[in-house]
Every structure is written in structure tokens, then in C-alpha cells.
């Protein structure tokens, strides 16, 4: 990811400008975080929210494996391979839902350290990869 334009993402508004972290909101009044960004606070009902970069590392809070190809609006490849989905707790911020790079439930464990990365989840009409965010277990190949 050095030099040249940044690769295409599923939705640029989900990420910081440099594409390295998720972009959420933090309530100026009560400190509650949201992801993606939103204008109103779901905790204190306030309406003053500031952009905040979310932590790239956290711990696995729960997980499952998607075992069948979802119907539309899913846009992943026709050839389906089960993928992991989890919630990762980012300390002091929130618990974010994400695809996981691991799809073997025996290699996933609640509480294990996880790190965010960008992964291709489909190719666009021009044959270029479209990236989304995912979490990967830390310290595993």
C-alpha cells in the first residue's frame, strides 16, 4: 500500500483518510463511541459527535462462521468459501463487528488478541480488488 492511489474500499467513509483504521464517532457530551460515524448519540441523545479513529487492536468478543453464500445484497465471489464473522472489543471504545480472516472455529477463541487489516472481498468490473476491513488473530500465521 505504498505510493499511488489507495485501493478501492467497499465504502471510504468507514475509514480514516490514510485507510489504516476504522473511523467512528465519539460523543462530546458523554464519550460514547459509535461505528460507523453518526450524528446523534445513542446513549445520551445528544447531537454533538466528533470523528475518532478506532483502535486497530482488540480482543475477540464472539465469533461464528458464515456457512452458506448469502443472498443479495451480498457481493462476494460466486464461488463461496465460508468466512468468519466476529465482534472484537476495542478497549475503551466499542465492540465492532467484522469479518475474520480465520474460518476454522477451532482456531478461534473468545478473548484472543486480534488486529485489524484490509482484505479484498471481491473484484470489481475492472478486475481490481475491492477491500473491506477484517480482524486477524495476532501471532498466528
Amino acid at each position: 500500500m505504498t505510493g499511488g492511489p489507495l485501493p478501492r474500499t467497499v465504502d471510504d467513509s468507514l475509514f480514516t483518510a490514510d485507510g489504516t483504521a476504522l473511523l467512528g464517532s465519539r460523543c462530546d457530551d458523554c464519550g460514547a463511541h459509535t461505528f460507523p460515524r453518526q450524528g446523534g448519540c445513542p446513549r445520551c441523545t445528544g447531537s454533538s459527535m466528533a470523528d475518532v479513529a478506532l483502535a486497530r487492536e482488540g480482543t475477540l468478543w464472539s465469533f461464528t462462521i458464515q456457512g452458506f453464500r448469502p443472498k443479495t445484497p451480498y457481493q462476494g465471489p460466486d464461488e463461496f468459501e465460508p468466512y468468519g464473522v466476529g465482534y472484537v472489543e476495542l478497549p475503551g471504545q466499542l465492540i465492532v463487528e467484522a469479518r475474520l480472516t480465520e474460518n476454522d472455529p477451532d482456531r478461534l477463541e473468545i478473548g484472543m488478541p486480534m488486529r485489524m487489516e484490509m482484505i479484498p472481498f471481491r473484484t470489481d468490473d475492472a478486475g481490481e480488488p475491492v477491500l473491506t476491513f477484517a480482524f486477524t488473530p495476532v501471532g498466528r500465521s
Binding site: V10, D11, P36, Q66, P70, Y74, Q75, V85, E97, T132
Partner: peptide, 9 residues
């Protein structure tokens, strides 16, 4: 956002 459905969540 549409990304949530497109990425299979």
C-alpha cells in the same frame, strides 16, 4: 450503509 450487506454481515 450498503457495505454491511455487500460484505456479508
Amino acid at each position: 450503509g450498503a457495505w454491511y450487506g455487500e460484505t456479508g454481515l
